[in-house]
Design a protein around this nucleic acid. Structure first.
Lengths: 213, 213
DNA sequence: AGCCGCATTCGTGTATACATAGGCCTTGCA
DNA sequence: TGCAAGGCCTATGTATACACGAATGCGGCT
């Protein structure tokens, strides 16, 4: 593994998991010492992070971890609704029925995963991730997929911010199942509607959980 | 101006203007000699270009200029319709009426700009650019604006590919005027419809001009 | 004559030294 | 005591040297 990849992965993880608070200044020398690599790979990692929007250049004073305001969350979900709504519709038109029928069935059994003792809900999020990947593959539009990928980075940060309590996750699984079902049925408008519904519920949950932000 | 910015701007321009053909290998040493800077800023420039999708890493053999296939154009316009349709609708809801009324009037006078002898149509494209900027500002959604900006880089390449003949540009100006008019009227659905219409016409023109691609 | 293996070479990946600019602290003067 | 100016220091920006890996070409063997 390249040193720059390691630096990038570590810093990205630290930012997404909120171990590096917004506003934290990431100096090149400081990070190169912390990560045990030289400045060059750290530079490249910071450039990539800034391109993604996880950090922003602070005029000659290193880069700082970007903050996520309430307005940011609104804006992110506005774009997300547009992109994922379209993606769901396209997946309904172009996707393979069997794939989404399988996902639908798995999602209906999601409560079993959530009732587990795993606090990080790894299996649940892996299942949801599989739905995302299936949609990405089904739309066969690399530009749309790329736009959704770059947005998901920021959405993971928001997710970590919200309390992923069992009731909400169970409800979300039902909503995801509805999306998968609509795609499997080849019903584009229904798939888009189910996505819109799910995203509105998610946004409401996030805002209800963190009203102070 | 920083050397890395200069290298980035030069390479980006060369790619967009098709002076660097798709498939061209951009080696670091070679470009550093051509641009008169050292490898480090060239590296950063190539990284940025790869992040934007104008180049892609070619496994240990430098980066190569990406190609634009017919499928790419279809995919780009599919995403563009989604993003710009939403943007036009939001601009209609949130934009300042006076700004778009002014743009509407200017766009109706666009044929004067096109009949000029300027072969590059600078003034015309500047006017269209002002419409884009006005919409970007009106939507007040940095994530959506960012997604559109990153897509526009590739669209400029496509535009350079198509013959921007006077008849099409005159028709496009009318279509743009219709979008501005709908936004000024605060009619979100009409603005979105006008955008959809314009993009379909643009795509048809591009595909008619370059059927071999 | 064709194929396999080794060496050479080119290219990127990394480290480090140097240049430079901007900010902060200190000091002197009003 | 407050403000301004100058110097120092720390940070990034750039250049360059070194290392490693892969691809290619040549030579020998079959």
């Amino acid at each position: 593994m390249r040193a720059s990849d390691k630096a990038y992965a570590t810093l990205r993880e630290d930012i997404i998991e909120w171990r590096l608070a917004p506003g934290t200044v990431l100096a090149e020398v400081e990070q190169s010492e912390r990560l045990g690599v030289s400045r060059t790979p750290v530079r490249e990692a910071l450039s990539r992070l800034s391109a993604e929007g996880l950090t922003m250049a602070a005029g000659g004073r290193g880069v700082v971890v970007t903050d996520i305001s309430l307005e940011d969350i609104d804006e992110m979900f506005e774009l997300r609704e547009t992109l994922e709504g379209k993606a769901a519709a396209l997946a309904a038109e172009r996707g393979e029925r069997a794939v989404f029928e399988k996902l639908h069935a798995d999602l209906l059994r999601a409560p079993e995963l959530i009732s587990d003792a795993d606090p990080a809900r790894h299996e649940y999020y892996a299942l949801v991730g599989r739905l995302d990947e299936a949609i990405d593959a089904a739309i066969s539009n690399s530009y749309l997929a790329q736009a959704m990928r770059s947005l998901r980075v920021h959405l993971v940060r928001v997710r970590r911010l919200a309390a992923d309590d069992a009731p909400r996750l169970n409800a979300a699984a039902v909503e995801h199942a509805a999306i998968a079902e609509a795609i499997a049925a080849g019903n584009a408008r229904l798939a888009e509607a189910a996505t819109t519904l799910h995203l509105h519920r998610s946004l409401s949950h996030v805002k209800a959980t963190h009203p102070q932000h």
